[in-house]
C-alpha cells in the first residue's frame, strides 16, 4: 500500500504550508483589501509597499520607543500612521486631481525610504509583546489538520472572516455600498443623484491606507516579529495583483491572498527543505517562486481579455469604470 505513506507525506507538506501560509498571507490580505476599498471608489493607490512599511515601522516605534505594551494599541498606531500617509495621497489625487499613478509611485518609494530611515536603529531588535495564538475550538495535537486551520492569532480571524464578510455586506447589501460602487463606476452619475464623490473617495482611500498599514503592523507584531529594512519585500505589489485577480470582490480577495501568500511561503518551505528546480538549482527555484505571483496575475488578467476575444463577455471581473480617473463637476 503506497497510498498511506504518500498521503502522509503530502499531508505533512500541505499542513506545514497551510500553517505558515495563513499568517504569511494575512499581510497581503490586509493590504489587498485596503487597495480594493480605494479602487472601488475609483482611486488607484499604488503606494501599498510604502504603506506597509509605514504601518510596520510605527508599530515598532510604538513598542520599542514609546513603551506601548499592548499589541492592539501598537497596531492602531501603525494604522493611524499609514492613514495619515494615505490622507496626504488622497488629498493630492482627489482634491487636487494629481495623477494617481505618479503620486502612488511616489508614496511607494517614499514610504519605503521613510520607514527604512526610521527603522535604522531598531534593526533586528525582537518585539516581545506580540499577538498570541488562540484556539477557535478545543485543543488539538501538534501538526494536525485542525491546528493548521484553527490555531492562529486574533488578527488572522478578523482578516479572514470578519473583515471580508463585513465588506461584502457593506458593498453589496447596503444603500451606502451601492452609492460607493457608483462613485467608482461613474462619478458623474453618482454626483447627479446627490452622492458626494469627494467625501467617499477621500474616506475610503484613507480607510484603505489604514488597512494596508495594519498589514505592515501585523508583520512586526506577530509574523516576523522584528523590524528589518525593506520589510514589505514586494508584498505591497503582490497585494495590487491580488485585487485584479480577485476582480474587486472581497471574498475573492481572501482566496487570492491565500494563493499568493502560499507562493511566498512555498519559497521559504522550499529553501528549508532544500527543494530544487530540475536542471537549475536551489537559488533559481527561489527566483522562480518570487516571479510566480506576477505570472499568475498576468494569466488572471488575460483570461477575461481572452474570453472577450472569443465573444464572451466577462463583466463581473471588470475594473471599476472610473478607476484612476480624477473627477470634477463640469461647470460653465
Amino acid at each position: 500500500m503506497i497510498s498511506a505513506q504518500v498521503l502522509a507525506l503530502i499531508d505533512n507538506a500541505f499542513l506545514s504550508l497551510v500553517g505558515s501560509a495563513i499568517p504569511a498571507s494575512t499581510v497581503v490580505l490586509l493590504a489587498a483589501t485596503g487597495a480594493m476599498l480605494g479602487e472601488r471608489v475609483g482611486v488607484l493607490n499604488l503606494g501599498q509597499e510604502g504603506l506597509i512599511g509605514v504601518g510596520a515601522v510605527y508599530a515598532v516605534i510604538a513598542v520599542l520607543s514609546w513603551g506601548i505594551t499592548s499589541p492592539w494599541l501598537a497596531l492602531l498606531i501603525g494604522m493611524a500612521a499609514a492613514a495619515l500617509a494615505g490622507l496626504i495621497f488622497a488629498v493630492a489625487v482627489v482634491v487636487f486631481r494629481a495623477n494617481q499613478v505618479l503620486v502612488g509611485l511616489a508614496l511607494a518609494l517614499g514610504g519605503v525610504g521613510l520607514s527604512n530611515q526610521l527603522g535604522t536603529n531598531r534593526n533586528g531588535t525582537p518585539i516581545q509583546n506580540t499577538f498570541q495564538e488562540v484556539s477557535l475550538g478545543g485543543s488539538f495535537e501538534d501538526g494536525s489538520v485542525l491546528e493548521a486551520f484553527l490555531f492562529h492569532d486574533p488578527i488572522v480571524y478578523l482578516a479572514y472572516i470578519a473583515m471580508p464578510v463585513a465588506l461584502w455586506f457593506l458593498l453589496f447589501r447596503t444603500r451606502h455600498g451601492m452609492n460607493m460602487r457608483a462613485v467608482g463606476e461613474n462619478p458623474a452619475a453618482a454626483d447627479a443623484v446627490g452622492v458626494s464623490v469627494m467625501r467617499s473617495r477621500l474616506g475610503y482611500t484613507v480607510l484603505g491606507a489604514a488597512l494596508s498599514g495594519a498589514g505592515g503592523a501585523y508583520m512586526v507584531l506577530s509574523f516576523t516579529p522584528t523590524w528589518s529594512p525593506d520589510i514589505a519585500r514586494g508584498r505591497g505589489w503582490v497585494a495590487l495583483a491580488v485585487v485584479i485577480f480577485a476582480g474587486w470582490r472581497p471574498g475573492w480577495v481572501v482566496a487570492g491572498a491565500l494563493l499568493y501568500g502560499s507562493m511566498i511561503s512555498l519559497d521559504t518551505t522550499a529553501q528549508a527543505r532544500g527543494w530544487e528546480l530540475p536542471f537549475f538549482g536551489p537559488s533559481d527555484l527561489s527566483f522562480f517562486l518570487s516571479m510566480l505571483p506576477y505570472v499568475v496575475t498576468l494569466i488572471a488578467i488575460l483570461i477575461p481579455a481572452g474570453a472577450a476575444k472569443i465573444g464572451r463577455r466577462v463583466r463581473a471581473t471588470a475594473a471599476p469604470g472610473a478607476l484612476a480617473i480624477p473627477y470634477w463637476r463640469e461647470e460653465r
Partner: peptide, 8 residues
C-alpha cells in the same frame, strides 16, 4: 447626457 451607472 444620461447619468446612469452602466454595469449596475
Amino acid at each position: 447626457h444620461f447619468r446612469l451607472v452602466e454595469p449596475m
